[in-house]
């Protein structure tokens, strides 16, 4: 039932298209480098949170947008990464960088295990399987309080690698920007690879995918594990950035929130993960700037409905359509 028609992408770029593309990329890079020197630390913190959620969101783009699998355990993998980082620091005094491979390995193992169910279950029932694992994770993180700190959670030190303190907002910013760009590039590469085509085929029509020699089960499985890894690494970054984690960061509603974000952003494009994450972080901020911060929780539902009605393809595809529309109408005039 989560069958999607592909949203038209800008294909067949010509020469001038390429130039414009390069100009966009250069401008973007300049902005990325300039931002930390323009913004206050408060905004840098929020940009960091956005980057973390975007990396996790990229995992969902691969999982849901590319492959069509609905997961409600995404926040749990995020939680595994976050807890490994915090537990390593609190209980074993491990520096952040050492906990990264551990987090990676545990997420790989957990993703590989939960993913087994993706081999033959899809759609809502797969969503329910992931929800079940998510509930078990949440339950364990509350009950196993000697290790996890229970409901009150654990404190985490900011990352520090080779003398560089990523508790410093500017250092942290560059770390997040670098990892975020890396993850985004990976995601784009994955989409355009042969595996990307296998994922799209699996999503659009299982039957067609099978008849063209794609192993649907294998594709689903690999996509699920990759998605889990993205989320786990994002979670690992997250705990040091916010400084404290507790189970309610990683419950069913957190997973739903992540899903809402990428769908709003545009679930089939890696940029959608960024826009979705920015939506989660900065829209409440807009209410704050307008001095009506407490209206956000009241209006957030209505806002979601409004977005669905006004931008029924997601923000990024809508923008792309608008840009293309602008481009063609200008072309007509010439």
């Amino acid at each position: 039932m989560f069958n999607m028609q592909s949203v038209a992408r800008s294909d067949g770029r010509g020469g001038p298209e390429n130039l414009r593309h390069m100009a966009w990329v250069t401008g973007g890079c300049l902005l990325v480098f300039a931002l930390p020197f323009i913004l206050e630390t408060y905004w840098l913190y929020l940009v960091g949170v956005t980057a973390v959620y975007a990396i996790a969101g990229l995992g969902l783009v691969i999982l849901f947008g590319f492959t069509g699998q609905l997961s409600l355990a995404h926040a749990s993998f995020f939680g595994i990464g976050a807890y490994v980082s915090a537990i390593g620091g609190v209980h074993y005094g491990l520096p952040g960088i050492v906990t990264l491979p551990i987090a990676f390995a545990i997420c790989l193992g957990a993703g590989a295990f939960v993913g087994i169910f993706a081999l033959r279950i899809s759609g809502l029932r797969f969503a329910l399987i992931t929800l079940s694992f998510g509930e078990l994770f949440y339950w364990a993180s509350v009950r196993w309080s000697d290790v996890t700190g229970g409901e009150q959670g654990l404190y985490a030190e900011p990352l520090s690698v080779m003398g560089i303190d990523f508790g410093d907002p500017i250092n942290a910013y560059f770390l997040f920007a670098a990892l975020g760009l890396l993850a985004t590039a990976l995601c784009f590469r994955l989409r355009d690879s042969s595996f990307g085509r296998a994922m799209a085929a699996t999503r659009d029509s299982e039957l067609a995918a099978r008849s063209s020699g794609v192993s649907v089960a294998r594709t689903r499985y690999i996509a699920f594990v990759i998605g889990a890894l993205f989320s786990g690494v994002a979670g690992w970054l997250f705990s040091g950035h916010v400084g404290a984690i507790s189970p309610n960061f990683f419950d069913m509603f957190a997973s739903l929130n992540m899903l809402v974000a990428v769908i709003i952003g545009g679930v089939k494009t890696p940029l959608g993960a960024w826009v979705g994450a920015a939506y989660l972080v900065f829209v409440p901020e807009l209410f704050g700037m307008a001095g009506v911060s407490n209206l956000y929780p009241i209006l957030s539902g209505a806002l979601l409905v409004l977005i669905v009605l006004v931008l029924p393809v997601g923000i990024v595809p809508a923008l792309q359509q608008a840009l293309r529309h602008l481009g063609t109408s200008r072309g007509d005039k010439q």
Partner: peptide, 26 residues
């Protein structure tokens, strides 16, 4: 809301009903 969601199963139906749920709660 729901009848205006163009593609059922795209995830937008999920967001629409979630949005309504949050709206009614608020």
């Amino acid at each position: 809301v729901i009848s205006r969601v163009t593609k059922i199963g795209s995830g937008f139906d999920l967001i629409a009903t979630l949005g309504v749920m949050m709206f009614l709660t608020a």
